[in-house]
Simulated scan of single mutants.
Amino acid sequence: MSTDHQRAREALGARLRELRLSAPGGRLTGTRLAEHSGWGKSKVSKLENGKQTPTPDDLLRWVQAVGQPDAYDELLGRLRGFESHVRSWRRQLAAGHTPVQQKIAAEYAQSAVVHGFESATIPGILQTADYARSVFSRYAELHRSKRDTEEAVRARLRRQELLYDGRKRFLILVGETALRSLICPPSALAGQLDRLAGLIGLDTVRLGIIPVGASMKIPPTGGFWIHDERLVVIETWHAELWVDDADSIALYLRTWHALQESAVFGADAQALIGRARRALGG
């Protein structure tokens, strides 16, 4: 469990304690609250001290017991803010990569404008089948997860149909390093670079390449994807983070725009892709 996750759970517990102690009918003891809610005696203490994550039903029973039903939406928002957004790869990949692809595809489907950045890997929404196959195989080995590679590849490629939806816009930045990283066989990377070159000029996609050696306003870090200024998805080695608070989304948008200032587009991007392609030969 991440430190941020635990701190958020402890903060929620402190808020629950505050509501119990400020009950309109007088402060309620933990024992009385447990009896009123039909719980064991230790549950109130565990919830208040961040030792147990409440369910939405737990929160509803709590606000009813302390006579403060108006606090339910606030508590539920706090719960959603940390419980659903730290998505451990170990848990997600227990059923393989395909369900993960289907979940993120649903977010793309409801997004009109997507801002994306990847520093060292070709983004999934732009990958060829051969490149995606190598990526899924490497990650399955790393996480020791179910190998459903071919299903996952098909799911990823189905998402790419959205690139041709005239109602959508994809604003994507990719580090030049991604054009040369051999996470796949050279022949697969060659095909991937041809695919990238073919997307430049598509009216729904604005693809920028950040050259190696470009002057940077901020240091590039891991990839992130912003959906309609309502959600940011960030991948780390251990988990996928889904962030939906306004301040954080604004920060990632500022980050994207700062990175964009270092990117090249159009013919200049084509030239970088062509240079990487020629370096592969064949």
Rank of each mutant, 00 (worst) to 15 (best):
K168N: 02
R61M: 08
E151V: 02
S45H: 11
G266H: 08
K146F: 01
I273F: 10
F117N: 02
I273E: 04
F265L: 08
H5D: 09
Y72V: 12
L171P: 00
H257T: 12
G201W: 12
V205W: 05
L251P: 00
D165V: 10
R169G: 00
S37V: 08
E150A: 14
V212Y: 00
G116S: 15
A279P: 00
S2N: 13
A105L: 09
H238W: 11
R133M: 04
L253F: 08
K217A: 14
H115A: 03
R17W: 01
Y164Q: 09
G208P: 04
H85I: 10
P54L: 07
A109S: 09
I210S: 05
R87V: 09
A190Y: 13
A250C: 05
G274H: 14
Y108I: 09
N49W: 02
L207M: 06
R17H: 08
A267E: 14
A14M: 05
Q102M: 11
R90P: 00
F82M: 06
Q260H: 13
T3V: 15
L259K: 10
L76Q: 03
A279V: 00
R159N: 07
L47R: 03
M1A: 10
A188W: 04
G208N: 04
S37R: 13
A8F: 08
A152D: 03
I125G: 03
T3E: 13
S111W: 03
P219G: 05
A34P: 01
T121F: 10
A214M: 04
A120Y: 07
R277L: 14
F136D: 06
I234N: 05
A214I: 06
Q260N: 11
A190N: 03
I234A: 14
T98L: 09
V100D: 02
L280W: 09
L93W: 04
